[in-house]
Amino acid sequence: MLDATARSLIAVIRDAVGRYLAPVTALFSLPVTFLMSNHAYYFGFVPVPLRAAPTPTSAAAAR
């Protein structure tokens, strides 16, 4: 299910915006951790962008 959610996120996000995924996730974490517990955020939400983010090997292979 996590892989399917990450693939859906990849389908929505354009390639040009993908490199800003980490800063957006970091800025998004501040207000969200006030609304929900840390465990729910870091174990429920953060794995999705981590799976969607390009790895250094996949980025090098795309060039």
Rank of each mutant, 00 (worst) to 15 (best):
A62K: 05
Y20I: 00
A11W: 04
F28D: 03
G18S: 06
M36N: 08
F45N: 02
D15W: 05
I10A: 01
G44T: 07
V12D: 09
V24Q: 10
P56C: 07
A53M: 06
L27T: 07
A26L: 15
L2M: 11
A61L: 13
L50H: 03
R14F: 02
G18N: 02
V12K: 13
D3C: 09
R63T: 03
A26D: 15
T5C: 14
A61S: 13
A6L: 01
P49A: 02
L35S: 08
R7C: 05
P54Q: 15
A11I: 05
D15N: 14
F45A: 04
M1A: 14
V24S: 10
F28V: 01
A40E: 07
P31E: 03
A62R: 06
I13V: 11
P56Y: 03
A6G: 03
D3W: 09
S8H: 11
T5G: 15
M1I: 13
T33F: 07
D15A: 14
M36P: 04
T25P: 06
L50M: 05
V46P: 01
P54L: 13
P49K: 01
F45V: 05
T33L: 14
S37K: 13
V46L: 11
L21T: 00
R51S: 09
S58Q: 12
P47I: 01
R51A: 11
A16E: 12
A61N: 07
A53N: 02
V32F: 11
A61I: 09
P47W: 00
A4S: 08
A40C: 04
R51V: 15
I13R: 00
A26G: 12
L50T: 01
P31A: 00
P54V: 12
P23Q: 06
L50P: 05
N38G: 12
S58Y: 10
L35V: 05
A61Y: 13
S8P: 11
A22Y: 09
A52R: 00
V32E: 04
N38F: 10
P56Q: 01
S58R: 15
L30K: 11
L21W: 00
A53L: 07
A53Y: 01
D15I: 08
S29L: 03
F28R: 05
A16W: 04
R14N: 04
A6D: 01
S58P: 03
V24A: 11
N38H: 14
S58E: 15
S8Q: 10
A61M: 11
V48G: 05
R7N: 12
L50S: 03
Y42Q: 07
A40R: 04
A59I: 08
R63F: 13
F28H: 08
Y42E: 06
P49L: 00
A16S: 14
L2A: 09
A40L: 06
M36F: 09
H39M: 15
T5A: 15
N38P: 08
A4N: 08
R7T: 10
S8N: 10
A4P: 10
Y42A: 03
L21D: 00
A22V: 13
I10Q: 01
M36I: 12
F28K: 04
T25Y: 05
P23M: 04
V32Q: 06
L35P: 06
